[in-house]
């Protein structure tokens, strides 16, 4: 029982990080029909921004994390939208998807050449101590990661539902044409979603890199996990992405412990196939119909 509880907590902690990346997927899709296949690399890269700030400029860890988030917002949010998304979106969804795949490869190889092909140590945000909860030894770091990820998600949900800008962003996501008629600055709202996506990706990067170590290839697994989480949860709902992320994290851990580490990566993919076959709208997603 203690083992299962530890596995579930560890899975929730990793799953919450997947959820941060998965939310970005759904936000971009909802507001701008952008399927960002470079999302994994968006999570990989901010750790390198922080490493450059720490190791090249000698800045303290907390400042380096802040700089990583700001640089991510600028490059992976604003510049990404202006340079890649805006020109390509006019050509349709498929050319944009191909562009993001190319961008992902570029970022991966760029990180390798610019920094290193080897994994780099990355500091833990929380101390690596244990706490006893109901007689079960749990990692303080895992609990901290889980809490911080959930706090970020809760803040985002509050922002989207309780603020004027948040509601305008939701209106943009639901129907940009009507939103524009109602006076919502749709273009600015879309830009905000890219900024939020970049900030969430940076948060995910700072939380996952102490576990994975910072490495150029981390995006491959993270991008896939986030994509699966978004689909399983429901591609058109932020709360679906959260549920999907947590579910994928827990299933991944249980599969590693009770099936085999060899098959652990296939288990979330099997889950994805099952959802596409039997519940295509995902756990919490809305069913969408197209008019002919």
């Amino acid at each position: 029982m203690a083992e299962i509880l530890q596995l579930v907590i560890a899975g929730l902690a990793t799953g919450a990080i997947y959820a941060l990346a998965a939310i970005g997927f759904t936000l971009l899709w909802q507001t701008s029909q952008t399927i960002n296949f470079a999302q994994g690399e968006f999570v990989m890269l901010p750790a390198f921004f922080a490493l450059v700030a720490m190791n090249w400029f000698g800045w303290p860890f907390w400042l380096s994390c802040l700089v990583a988030i700001l640089v991510s917002v600028l490059l992976l949010g604003m510049v990404f939208k202006v340079i890649v998304v805006d020109p390509m979106l006019k050509q349709g969804v498929l050319p944009l998807v191909i562009s993001t795949i190319a961008l992902g490869l570029l970022l991966r190889e760029g990180a390798k050449d610019f920094y290193s092909a080897e994994a780099q140590p990355f500091p833990y945000i929380f101390p690596d101590r244990q706490v006893s909860v109901l007689g079960v030894q749990l990692s303080l770091s895992q609990i901290g990661v889980l809490l911080i990820a959930l706090a970020v998600i809760a803040a985002l949900q509050l922002f989207l539902s309780r603020t004027r800008t948040g509601r305008q962003m939701q209106a943009t996501a639901q129907n940009p044409t009507v939103a524009r008629i109602l006076g919502v600055p749709v273009e600015r709202m879309i830009l905000y979603t890219f900024i939020i996506n970049a900030a969430l990706a940076a948060m995910a990067s700072l939380l996952i890199s102490p576990i994975y170590l910072a490495k150029f290839s981390n995006g491959e697994h993270l991008g896939l996990a986030a994509f699966v989480a978004a689909i399983v949860g429901g591609f058109n709902q932020v709360r679906g992405a959260i549920a999907g992320g947590l579910l994928v994290g827990v299933i991944d851990n249980l599969a590693a412990a009770y099936v085999s580490t060899g098959y652990r990566q296939s288990v979330p993919l099997i889950l994805l196939v099952l959802f596409i076959l039997f519940r295509p709208q995902g756990l919490l997603g809305r069913r969408e119909e197209r008019a002919v």
Binding site: E3, A13, I211, D252, A257, T261, G262
Partner: peptide, 20 residues
């Protein structure tokens, strides 16, 4: 007797199994 994968990033499940 625990098998892990080359390139594996997350060892949480393996460590929990080893604790047990």
């Amino acid at each position: 007797d625990l098998s892990t994968e080359a390139g594996q990033a997350d060892f949480a499940a393996d460590v929990i199994k080893l604790k047990s």
